[in-house]
C-alpha cells in the first residue's frame, strides 16, 4: 500500500462501495464493519499479497477505489463465504470481492478463467473443456459397453435426453473429458437404487467458470441452458453430482 497520506476529497462522490451497496440486499451491510478482524483471522487468503478481508473492507470504507479495483487479491479470495459466516455484522465481503472482479476489464481478468468461460459459452454442452455433444454421447456409449459386461449391471442404463425421467444428472467435464471410467461408480449407484435418471445432451456440464469470472451475463446464460434442458425433458429434479 502507498505510504502517501490518504487525501479525502471534499466533494462527495459515489465510491465503489456505494455502487456495490446499491446492488446488494441490505447493501451487503458494508457500512456495518466493526473492524474486529474475525474475518481475517479465519481466512486462508489472509496475508497473500499483504491483504486480508478486513483490509478489503477498510479500503472500501475509505473510498480507496483504485487500490480496491487493482489488487490481485480479488482473484486470491475464493469467495468461500467463511468470513461472512463468521462475521458478527454479516458484512458481505465475498460479494464485495465478486464486484471487485467484475470491475476488471473483461480481457484483463485471469486468462484461464476467461477462456474456460468463453469455451463453455461457445459449446452447447456448456463444457469448459469444449467437450461437444457427439463426443459426450460416444464416450457414454463406450463406457456403457464395458460396464454391461459386469454381472448385475447387464441392464445398466445411462440415458441421454430421456423424456420425463425423474432426475436430470449433471457431470463435471473432467470425467467424460479425461477420466471417463470415473463415471461408472456413479452409474452403478444409480442403477443399484433403481433411480430413473437421465443426462441432457445440452448443458450437462457441471462447471460454471463464468461465475468465477464475475461475468453476470455469462454465468446466467450457462445456468439458463441447464435449466432449459431440465424443463424440456420434464424432469422433477436437477441433481448436482458434485
Amino acid at each position: 500500500m502507498s505510504k502517501e497520506p490518504v487525501v479525502i476529497k471534499k466533494k462527495k462522490e459515489k465510491t465503489f462501495k456505494d455502487i456495490v451497496m446499491e446492488k446488494l440486499p441490505d447493501g451487503g451491510n458494508l457500512n456495518a464493519c466493526l473492524t474486529c478482524g474475525t474475518c481475517a483471522a479465519g481466512c486462508p487468503a489472509t496475508g497473500l499479497h499483504g491483504m486480508d478481508p478486513r483490509k478489503i473492507v477498510r479500503l472500501a470504507a475509505l473510498g480507496m477505489d483504485e487500490e480496491l479495483k487493482k489488487t490481485p487479491w480479488a482473484w486470491l479470495c475464493s469467495m468461500c463465504t467463511r468470513c461472512v459466516y463468521a462475521c458478527p455484522m454479516n458484512v458481505n465481503i465475498p460479494q464485495l470481492v465478486f464486484n471487485m472482479r467484475a470491475a476488471w476489464p473483461r480481457e484483463e481478468r485471469p486468462r484461464g478463467i476467461l477462456r474456460s468461460c468463453d469455451v463453455a459459452l461457445g459449446t452447447d454442452t456448456c463444457s469448459a473443456m469444449g467437450f461437444p455433444v457427439q463426443d459426450f454421447i460416444d464416450v457414454v456409449e463406450e463406457m456403457l459397453e464395458g460396464v454391461r459386461t459386469q454381472p448385475g449391471f447387464e441392464d445398466l442404463q445411462a440415458p441421454i435426453d430421456k423424456q420425463g425421467a425423474y432426475f436430470l444428472v449433471n457431470q463435471n467435464s473432467r470425467e467424460p473429458g479425461t477420466e471417463p471410467e470415473e463415471m461408472i461408480p456413479l452409474w452403478k449407484i444409480l442403477h443399484m437404487v433403481g433411480a430413473d435418471w437421465t443426462y441432457s445432451s445440452k448443458g450437462w456440464a457441471a462447471e460454471n467458470y463464468c461465475l468465477f469470472l464475475a461475468d453476470d451475463d455469462g454465468w446466467k446464460e450457462i445456468t439458463r441452458r441447464a435449466a432449459e434442458a431440465a424443463e424440456e425433458l420434464g424432469v422433477q429434479s436437477f441433481v448436482n453430482t458434485e
Binding site: 482473484w75 486470491l76 475464493s78 468461500c80 484461464g112 478463467i113 467458470y209 468465477f212
Partner: peptide
C-alpha cells in the same frame, strides 16, 4: 474454488 485452479496464481 472460485476459479483458483484456472488463474495464474
Amino acid at each position: 474454488g472460485g476459479g483458483f485452479l484456472q488463474n495464474p496464481y
